[in-house]
């Protein structure tokens, strides 16, 4: 901000003092209004006629503690599914984006195939894709087709999310100015080399924030594999909830998903801020 050695004049010091006092006032106002809102919301909920019943069936600490081990076990499965799926999604998404970026009539069939894939799986609701893959695929009774609901759930997630991710990556690839491609080709690099060494590194940097956003979305959608019968955090919460005759395990699982998403969300914020800084710095 400053050159370090410059001694601000009296005028500037007075200005700085004024700015500091304004900042202090804003902080106080923001803090007080937050407290007032929180208290009002709390009072509105707790003074409602049904609150005692809701508290017992949704916010029962004892039930939460009893359900915790099973739900955590389930969450561990979600986490593993997340990591495996994300790797596969990135690989497949990158392949699709590369196919859709091919030019020239020779590549029409591949381009059309990739476009059809993206249109289909971006439009198909995830839950329907899960049902079709999870119940339809094993129903064919083909040898070699997996029957494990976790594996089938992963397949459905990868199918749908790779379509999204490929579009994000393609947007990145197309945002790199054509002159970069020209410069790379003029040095004698082949199309594949230019893509790998020059275009993709710039493209991925630009689309990192939206990619991380998709990652956060995937994190919670991993919970949907429970509809196929996989015992993940959501399914475990459902089982515990039936055993305890109490909805608290769902709230517990929900809070755990939120807790898991917060680091990813902060990472996404940090990546966006860094990207904005870099763009600003490159004058």
């Amino acid at each position: 901000m400053s050159s370090g050695h410059h001694q601000p004049s009296a005028l500037q010091q007075e200005r700085l003092a004024y700015r500091r006092s304004r900042a202090r006032r804003s902080t106080v106002v923001a803090f007080l209004s937050t407290v007032v809102f929180a208290v009002a919301a709390w009072l509105a909920v707790t003074s409602s006629p049904g609150w005692p019943r809701v508290r017992d069936s949704f916010f029962d600490v004892d039930a939460a503690l009893r359900a915790l081990p099973a739900v955590l076990d389930g969450l561990w499965l979600n986490l593993r599914v997340l990591v495996v799926c994300e790797v596969l999604i990135l690989a497949l998404g990158l392949g699709l984006a590369a196919l859709r970026s091919l030019r020239g009539p020779v590549w029409f069939p591949l381009r059309a195939l990739a476009t059809g894939y993206v249109d289909l799986f971006r439009g198909l609701p995830l839950i329907i894709c899960l049902f079709l893959v999870g119940f339809g695929l094993p129903g064919l009774r083909l040898t070699g087709v997996p029957t494990d609901p976790v594996v089938l759930g992963c397949v459905a997630l990868v199918l749908v999310y790779s379509a999204y991710v490929s579009e994000v990556l393609r947007a990145g690839i197309e945002s790199v100015h054509p002159s970069q491609r020209a410069a790379a080709r003029s040095l004698g690099l082949t199309h594949a080399q230019a893509m790998r060494i020059v275009i993709l590194p710039q493209a991925v940097r630009r689309v990192l924030p939206p990619l991380l956003n998709d990652f956060v979305a995937l994190q919670k959608d991993c919970g949907l594999i429970s509809v196929l019968g996989a015992v993940d955090a959501v399914r475990a919460a459902q089982i515990e909830s039936a055993k305890l005759y109490d909805f608290t395990p769902y709230v517990l699982a929900g809070l755990l998903f939120v807790a898991m998403a917060v680091p990813s969300a902060r990472l996404a914020d940090w990546a966006s801020a860094r990207a904005a800084r870099r763009r600003g710095g490159a004058s």
Binding site: Q180, A183, S186, L187, Q193, V198
Partner: peptide, 30 residues
């Protein structure tokens, strides 16, 4: 193209690479 060199009006250096990497890219890779 490997036997020609072209310099553009807008420089077209690769922004994600250092000066040294920009210069050594073609010798190394091509």
């Amino acid at each position: 193209r490997r036997r020609m060199g072209i310099v553009f009006q807008a420089y077209n250096l690769f922004p994600h690479m250092t000066v040294l990497d920009n210069v050594t890219l073609a010798p190394r890779v091509v």
